[in-house]
């Protein structure tokens, strides 16, 4: 039986809104990637490295699992 598919969800959009509507550009500059990469992460089109994931969590002052969640779904 194949392992369940892992989908990584994130709360970046909500966290940005709660941080005085921080723009994608602001977040991108603080974590050292392009605005398009932040957009791709938010939209689930790109899963960042652990380093960038921790940087994002650090910017919002949250633990990693409050920013990214692992959702298991059947194949």
């Amino acid at each position: 039986m194949p392992p369940p598919k892992v989908v990584i969800a994130n709360q970046i959009r909500v966290l940005r809104f709660n941080h005085r509507e921080m723009t994608q550009q602001d977040l991108a500059e603080r974590i050292g990637v392009s605005r398009q990469t932040v957009n791709a992460i938010e939209g689930g089109k790109y899963f960042p490295s652990l380093e960038v994931a921790f940087r994002i969590a650090q910017v919002f002052g949250k633990p990693l699992d409050e920013v990214f969640q692992c959702v298991m779904s059947p194949q």
Binding site: G32, V33, S34, R35, Q36, T37, A40, Y46, P48, V52
Partner: peptide, 8 residues
Amino acid sequence: AEGRDERD
């Protein structure tokens, strides 16, 4: 023109 990042 931003620099390249890990996604690129």
